[in-house]
Design a binder for these strands. Structure first.
Ligand SMILES: [Zn+2]
Ligand SMILES: [Zn+2]
Lengths: 454, 454
DNA sequence: TAATGGGTGCACT
DNA sequence: AAGTGCACCCATT
């Protein structure tokens, strides 16, 4: 049983936390002292509505409150498919988003601890000012005469109406390093998701078409940034470790932490196709890391809001990458170096930051991710399999799977790819060199499959 | 879409209704005038606790209340399997009993109508005086100072403790014909069920062993009575039709209704093996019906509590019967006459009644029955099947199926039989003649498969 | 509360 | 990320 890694974030930097820690528990700290357990939900809503997450209570008792996303399956489904009711009724998916927030009362500390348990979603996120939860929330704000918050949410509603950016907002901090860090002009909040049910099978031939159509929607950080960022995992882990130490030892110390200077990365041969055998995955990267002093790693993490959280589409079209995925689903670093084109370098420069680049490739479908998370549990079961056939596909089952009854993992076939409902980002900005592009795709496949979160 | 047949029963004869009408809607009439919808549940509990059915509300609003069996999956499961918790947690079935009672407020009639919607269960029924629902119910009785009911339930508890018969009770009626009708000395309430999850696959060779072990438990009406009773379906239907008419036309008229006089049944060649082709199933039986005047059919039905509701075990071991089942799952009468041994005749005489004999062969497993009920709905879906394989088993899905996520119908194999958790009744009391026995078994198989409810 | 079916928030157990 | 009893919803017809 593998324990999920923990991270600790201030609620003030929730945006960052949610975008970075897709595979970690997110402990929110500090949090207010709640007098009643009923006070928790409004507080969470105050910080999660702007994250376009509509919370409801799943279960609660005197010592625990479990929050989840409000089910909007009906609306979503209707929106997508207003006709063919009879036929669709059966296919209508259950709402099975695994995102949870757990609030538990610690008797020892006499306070409520709040943890984001599963920071992924099975659905698109959108701010819905007409939702019941939001209406109730606003009523409460009025009742509490919380004018400041009311004003903020009126602004949020206004922005939503005008299709202005919602999530993109400067994260202010008193460290003096925040100013240059800002969001790129993302218009709509990006789903940090892929979904189990909205994962569609499309013919591989349609891929470029799809990319094209999606390209025009958002103006986003090019994919290469995400790809590149996958190289920094090791560094990030070192930093995280250090941060934990700092937290425990001395809050404001400035430890010697390995930092990445992009100028010093060795870009030679970066686009070589990755080897097909999984044993090579664990090799170290060819990146050279340089230490950069006089930077607080804590600040560093907190200011990473400049990175894009936009998810790239899942592109499982090349066989090598798929083989790797099947053999070894790991978060290890890449075996081979990545080749950077001039344009990529430009993109990197545009970021004007030495921050570690976050990658949010919802590479696996949501269910894949659940499957991955599942391995941290001990439960093993059979789902949807004839008990007679022992050699038929048996896969581990978790409570998450249980949320989507009737769901079955799809097996890849050669001429199909999984396309999620995510907006793919502009592939063509990466390079015009066909060869390089193919190699890049191979890499992206791998990155997607490995679900790197650096 | 086939509509489920309706039946109308007085709550005073609920025992009969539940034992007879396994495949019909049971409209309870008359029912009290309920002032609040909250009054419905206590009233239902008052009459359903003695039926060993522990009701809870599934869903309610101002215009309807849906009741279902209280989930006791935890207890049941623990009882059966107290160790291996970790492993069992995954296999632990969801509670999926299809039994429902629907109370709807009729605006037109300004009254609540109560209908038993699906009179089958996926679990054993047992009276549990320690259940929460029962405790709450008793508190309410005390609060209402309902001494009579309190006394009755104390008696019920007392009987339960001493393992005395609970359900067997004389149905009193002012018609003067009730006295001779009584329950046989059944000690424990018999489950009118088989269950989806407790259906076990055992080797056919163990069958006689199983029968033997079960034989000693209960003293019950021999199986032949049930078998014989299947001949009376047509009559029953005529009676039912007549009853409907009587109800509508003249409540206390004494119409000329076909009645069965057992002395006049032609028992010749009764044990011939049924023909294998389904077309013969619809033939009329060779029974001779004699009309018996001066009997109210209404009374007749109401006094049927003398019949046994004990379910026989599922014996799908003979191929002919199975073929019939596959070809045509119907409620039609038997094609061939049934042969009665002397002992059977004695058994029949023991019943001392001309009441129609009820047959409650939970022949199909619970899920089979659900599947059958399913055909009354329009929903068709795929469950647990790879969408890629079009030729793989696809079966209709209903809401009931949905109650048991991950459940899959089992297909019969030649050397296996389905044994339910039901207590099989004494096969060897029927006859010692091996030939006859085999023929009888064939018949029983058919009866089981046809799930006759006469 | 036209009748009838189902989803789901959430606190009790 | 307890399972479920129950009620406030909404859906279709
Ligand atoms: Zn979600
Ligand atoms: Zn039941």
């Amino acid at each position: 049983m593998v324990k999920k890694p923990r991270s600790i974030w201030s609620p003030d930097h929730l945006t960052d936390a949610l975008h970075r820690e897709q595979n970690k528990l997110i402990h929110l700290d500090p949090v207010p002292i709640f007098k009643k357990r009923g006070d928790i939900k409004p507080w969470l809503q105050k910080i999660f509505f702007p994250q376009v997450i509509d919370l409801v209570i799943e279960r609660s008792d005197s010592g625990k409150v479990i929050f989840k996303c409000k089910s909007n399956i009906r609306h979503e489904y209707k929106k997508r498919n207003s006709k063919d009711k009879e036929e669709n009724k059966d296919n209508e998916p259950k709402f099975c988003c695994p995102f949870r927030i757990r609030a538990t009362f610690s008797l020892k500390l006499q306070k409520w601890n709040i943890v984001v348990v599963n920071n992924v979603h099975s659905h698109e996120l959108e701010f819905n000012p007409t939702s019941d939860e939001y209406k109730k929330f606003k009523k409460l704000l009025v009742a509490n005469n919380d004018l400041e918050t009311i004003k903020n949410f009126e602004e949020l509603e206004y922005k939503t109406k005008l299709k202005l950016p919602i999530l993109p907002q400067v994260m202010t901090c008193d460290c003096g390093l925040t100013n240059e860090i800002n969001w790129f002009d993302v218009v709509l909040p990006e789903p940090r998701i892929s979904t189990c049910k909205t994962t569609k099978r499309i013919n591989k031939k349609k891929k470029s078409q799809q990319s094209q159509s999606h390209l025009s929607r958002n103006n986003v950080i090019p994919m290469v940034s995400d790809s590149l960022s996958s190289f920094f995992k090791e560094t990030q882990e070192q930093i995280n470790t250090t941060i934990q130490n700092v937290k425990q030892e001395e809050q404001f110390a400035l430890p010697q932490t390995p930092m990445v200077n992009l100028d010093e990365i060795d870009f030679t041969d970066m686009f070589k196709t990755p080897k097909n055998n999984s044993s090579s995955i664990n090799n170290s990267t060819s990146l050279k890391f340089v230490k950069k002093d006089k930077e607080s790693p804590k600040h560093f993490l907190q200011h990473s809001s400049s990175t894009s959280s936009l998810s790239s589409t899942t592109l499982l079209e090349t066989q090598p990458a798929m083989d790797i995925a099947e053999d070894s689903l790991s978060y290890n670093n890449l075996a081979s170096p990545l080749h950077l084109t001039e344009e990529m370098s430009t993109d990197l420069l545009m970021m004007k930051t030495t921050a570690i680049i976050n990658i949010h490739t919802p590479s696996m479908t949501q269910m894949d991710m659940n499957m991955d998370a599942m391995t941290t549990t001990e439960s093993v079961g059979q789902v949807c399999e004839d008990p007679e056939e022992e050699e038929s596909a048996v896969f581990k089952e978790s409570a998450w799977i249980g949320l989507c009854p009737g769901l079955k993992l799809q097996q890849e076939s050669d001429n199909e790819i999984n396309e999620t409902t995510l907006q793919p980002i502009s592939e063509d900005r990466v390079t015009d060199d066909a060869d390089n592009k193919e190699q890049l795709n191979s890499y992206l496949d791998f990155l997607n499959i490995a679900n790197c979160s650096i």
